[in-house]
Design a binder for these strands. Structure first.
Lengths: 222, 222
DNA sequence: ACCTGAACACCGTTCAAGT
DNA sequence: ACCTGAACACCGTTCAAGT
């Protein structure tokens, strides 16, 4: 009457369960320490069991990334377009901060995936509605996306650094060893530079620069 | 009378030779396929010989990155400051395109190193001379640097994609499978989006947006 | 189809030892 | 100091086999 054998796992595996377990490991131990064998061990199966659901490691990376991109919030309606742009960019940044592996997954792998397309659709729609022509909308989308990706990746990288006592000490040593004769500006601006390696204020500063350039473009189009 | 034994390598190793060999392998086989054992094999020594010159793999990464950052050109004198900013950003981008591993080395590892400081010194000096206060200069430097890093990393990533027939085919398939009902803007702007995944024009578009925002700031400071 | 187990060709790094 | 050689604890992936 018990159809399931005593062999522990029996059809308990699924693509979604693997993705969730993989994401969990990436966030716990870091993307660099992530391994297929680790996922398999966490699930209590042999490494080869995963190959039924994913063709290889990269395929699993893509699935995890698309899983995360589904969490990007929708574009808010009924606000001016610059605020819509701000909301999308901040939403993507917040998601990357919550899931640091996402930054690496986005910069290290091709885009592909419907969820990535959904995010692009939202931002492109805003830009087209704001009156930008096709070419400008596409260029602006790429600019905004790469700015968010670059600035947030850098922020995450620096935050990880600060947490690693060894790396942090080495960075401090390097900074202090810089002669103020050779690097007067860097040395003189050390406190300001330390303050601008991340944070909402720094992110918004760059985003506002881009938006200021965009609004000037709207007022007198090229 | 022949003091050197017949054992082939004898004091032929040096930190610089290892760095040059490592860089060569990174560019030939890609950073992902790069390994310490590969460097050792290329030099005809055992893997452990490298540990005399570098504490570990990350230490070698840092050395390669600093070696490349030394190639960033100096800031041109006697031109208006926006052109100086443009020159620095384009110079960094060009170097990253010539040495694709640099993009990954910059986003994946802490900054450290005198050559990185030299590049920062150049750009920060320009911004301070242009009249920006310390805080704004530091924020602008971080914004520009992360923009260059993000946009160029993305460009390199996409170019690598296009070269891999398998990945390229999969990307095309994904794009074509997007329903124009669900993603009308993405589908409608497909050719424009394909055109903006890289190139000097796309890079300058974003850079000019940032500069337009900056020049507005100079005219009426916050 | 779903999963196992052994095997292959790799890794970075430690440790003890040689010169 | 500079380098070797064996060893440890890992990888992703292939292949043949079981159910």
């Amino acid at each position: 009457m018990t159809p399931a054998k005593t062999r522990t796992p029996r059809n308990t595996l699924s693509a979604e369960l693997i993705v969730r377990t993989a994401l969990d490991l990436m966030e716990t131990k870091g993307l660099d320490a992530f391994s297929l064998r680790g996922v398999a061990a966490a699930l209590g199966v042999g490494p080869m069991a995963l190959y039924t659901y994913f063709r290889n490691k990269d395929d699993l990376y893509d699935a995890v990334r698309d899983h995360l991109m589904a969490l990007v919030p929708d574009v808010p309606a009924d606000v001016p377009w610059p605020d819509q742009v701000r909301a999308v960019c901040r939403g993507l940044r917040t998601l990357m901060l919550e899931h640091p592996c996402l930054a690496q997954l986005l910069s290290g792998r091709p885009l592909s995936g419907h969820e990535t397309a959904r995010t692009a659709e939202g931002l492109l729609g805003v830009l087209r509605s704001a009156g930008f022509d096709k070419e400008t909308a596409a260029r602006t989308h790429t600019t905004l996306f790469t700015y968010v990706l670059g600035s947030t990746s850098w922020e995450i990288q620096m935050a990880a650094e600060r947490r690693d006592p060894d790396a942090w000490r080495r960075l401090r040593t390097t900074m202090e060893s810089l002669s103020s004769a050779e690097f007067p500006t860097v040395v003189g601006l050390a406190p300001e530079l330390a303050r601008t390696t991340g944070g909402d204020e720094q992110f918004d500063y760059g985003l506002d620069l881009l938006l200021a350039g965009l609004e000037a473009k709207v007022r007198r189009p090229a």
